[in-house]
Amino acid sequence: MATRILPRLSRLAQHLFLAGLFVFIAAPMLVIVVFSFDANRFPTIPWGGFSLDWHRAILEDAMVRDAFLNSILVGLGTAVLSTLLGFAAAYVDYRWRFFGKRAFVLLVAIPPAVPVTILGMAMLAFLSRLGLFGRLEAVIACHTAVASSFSMALIRLRLNDFGRDLEPAAWNLGASHAAALFTVVVPFCRPALIASFFLSAAVSFDEFMIAWFVGGVHETIPVRILNLLQGQVNPKINAIGTVVLAVSIALVVLAQWFVGVRVGKRTDPT
């Protein structure tokens, strides 16, 4: 009998450990979500009852609304630019061999490895010389620099499965180089391109340091949250946090869904 009980206990322990781990990760976020609907002014126990006051308050706060709008603009811009650049870089790496290619790939890959504080300061110094400091475009450019590394990695990974013969086969069947790029390479990469779009948007949406350094008066949502926190403990923060959390999770889930949806259908690399 003991031989049956032991494996069961072991499995139970494993499940409990996993559950504990998830609770540890998710609990702080859950707390924010729960208290964003709390009628109390301060997050205390017991709960003061359900209320949408704080969510209504952030809707009425012009600065929060602007910050949201900025974040969406910056996120969209970053997503589009970073996916375009990431695809271009990945395709160049896949397609050609040239002198200095290692250096080129390193250059694309390096931004996420640089501490964001240093990246932020460097970009601030650089942009103020160019007179681009304090503009949303500047934030988009800087976010793109970071996010395109992820885009490139994601798309390059997909291109690993792109059969060496597929593009020449398209030329052979009457496709010009441009036509082959758009009718063969891009469709093949589509899941990775969509995933890259959402992932870049998520990276941008959550990024604080660079936005804080170069955004000037144009606050994105993370910057607004910090500014709110510095002023006073405001229950609106929980409400903002809940919305940010929902958006971020949605973006990442979408990214994963588009990467995953084709994995199951993938053919053996031809």
Binding site: G163, R164, L166, P168, A169, N172, L173, S176, A179, P187
Partner: peptide, 17 residues
């Protein structure tokens, strides 16, 4: 290549997945 009309059957088949 794309103007030659010399289609080829590839060892890898090179079908578009």
């Amino acid at each position: 290549a794309f103007q030659r009309d010399t289609p080829m059957v590839w060892q890898s088949l090179a079908l578009f997945p």
